[in-house]
Design a protein around this nucleic acid. Structure first.
Length: 404
RNA sequence: GUCAGAGUGGCCGAGUGGUAAGGCGCUGGACUGUAAAUCCAGUGUAUUGUUACAGCAUAGGUUCGAUUCCUAUCUCUGGCA
């Protein structure tokens, strides 16, 4: 595990170029080196749900992220700062990223992504996003009802106190079901917020953090071009691709492709919120360097274990097994026979099924550990393939076809 | 033995002279910058389904109609012997 080195500055190197826009790289931070392409696990409230730091290390995790919004409400940014910053607070001494709260401007107003895309709204839950103005976003705390105004400068201040290596500008993650005119106006406001974030960041720059600018523009190629060029034109350390990526996978891949074609090529690029297996392959092919997603850890808590295509018994549409299903009750196989994780080494599907049915937390932990190992191993294989010039062979061997 | 109370779907548990609420369980599904160990749907039998037939311990009875009222029986719980 890398140790914090204040003299170690940031840099991003492209070590090798792969097919299409794919690239192998390294991202140096004061808390350690991240080999890219890499996956960032979500420890939103400064904790990986159901996994310990030790278990994260065991599965070769490189970097985790936490969230400005959640930590602002509880325990408060000052509290984390007084306790030594996120790394000391969590016990994770490797690289970290914090999200700006921009996604909560979406999720606390519209619910989760699937619900918004499918038009299901937010059943049984009142909106705690009160309004979005030029100044920022006003929220009502779901903990104590107190109102908060999150502005670009405030997000930068909080992220500075939290102390992650990589931080991102405040933006609005645009929904799918809005008019193009809304997406455009939102994008333009996010651009203004990006500059305010950048200025606030530069005013207090202490060399310990680097800032990512976020590309918006929804599913519209012309807006993505404008946004990508805007972000590229300003001195952000890295770029992130955010906002609505569409309702279907092909639409997402098209949005990523059009965005990437207009971004400057020398900075690290993060794809916000994406972590499906195929999505990662397609993203890498388009030049994405880092990904983050709640999916591997969330589905683990719902009984979902990630599996490679050749280990899926019947349903090839889904990238995981639902171990709650009765078909696994007496299954003596591990989640995957060819997996080297500790869960697969020691436990059968039948046992994991039992843990899920009896609601023993260990079940979530064991599946989450498999999923964490799976994701890190996937990225490892991708990096190896890029290094050995066999990325497309790997890509094809997993059953994916190049899109678009 | 006697007195009292109680028997409702796989389980718990409402309920009432007009055809059994809600949980749990079970079976699936969803989940992509985490208000998510959450949410959604189905769950007596037969048919794709409208529908048909069962059904509130068991057997009778009263009634247009009984899970509800009456009688007997069985079982359980508690008190007294």
């Amino acid at each position: 595990m890398p140790v914090y080195n204040p003299n170690q500055s940031f840099n991003f190197k492209i070590l090798k170029k792969g097919p299409h826009a794919a690239r192998l790289g390294s991202l140096q931070t004061p808390h350690g080196l991240i080999k890219t392409p890499a996956f960032i696990f979500c420890a939103t409230k400064a904790a990986m749900k159901s996994l310990t730091i030790e278990q994260l290390k065991t599965s070769d995790t490189q970097i985790i992220l936490s969230n400005t919004y959640h930590l602002m409400l509880q325990p408060g940014a000052e509290s984390v700062e007084k306790q030594g910053g996120l790394q000391k607070f969590t016990g994770w001494h490797g690289p970290m990223l914090t999200d700006s709260g921009g996604f909560q401007i979406f999720s606390l107003g519209h619910g989760n992504i699937a619900d918004e895309i499918k038009g299901r709204g937010m059943p049984n839950r009142s909106k705690t996003l009160l309004e979005i103005t030029e100044e920022g976003a006003r929220f009502r705390s779901y903990i104590n009802g107190k109102e908060y105004l999150l502005t670009p400068a405030e997000s930068m201040r909080i992220q500075r106190l939290l102390g992650a290596d990589l931080i991102v500008v405040l933006d609005e993650c645009t929904p799918y079901h809005v008019e193009k005119s809304y997406t455009q106006a939102s994008m333009e406001r996010s651009h203004r917020w990006a500059l305010q974030s950048l200025n606030a960041y530069l005013a207090h720059d202490n060399g310990k953090q680097k800032l990512y600018g976020i590309v918006q523009g929804g599913v519209y190629p012309d807006l993505r071009k404008i946004s990508a060029e805007f972000i590229s034109d300003h001195p952000f350390f890295g770029h992130a691709v955010g906002g609505s990526l569409g309702a279907e996978k092909q639409e997402m891949y098209d949005v990523i492709a059009s965005t990437m074609s207009h971004l400057s090529k020398d900075r690290p690029v993060h794809l916000l919120g994406i972590g499906g297996i195929e999505d990662i392959f397609q993203g890498v092919l388009q030049g994405i360097d880092t990904f983050d997603c709640v999916h591997p850890t969330r589905i683990a808590r719902h009984g979902g274990a990630l599996v490679k295509p050749w280990n899926r018994l019947d349903n090839h549409k889904r990238e995981h097994l639902n171990l709650r299903n009765s078909q696994y009750k007496l299954d003596l196989n591990p989640i995957e026979p060819d997996c080297a994780c500790t869960t697969c080494a020691n436990h059968t599907r039948g046992y994991l099924h039992h843990l899920l049915k009896t609601e023993i937390f260990l079940g979530f932990t064991l599946i989450a550990q498999h999923n964490a190992f799976f994701m890190n191993n996937l990225m490892k294989q991708i990096r190896y393939a890029l290094e050995q010039n066999i990325f497309l062979e790997l890509f094809n061997s997993w059953g994916f076809q190049q899109k678009p």
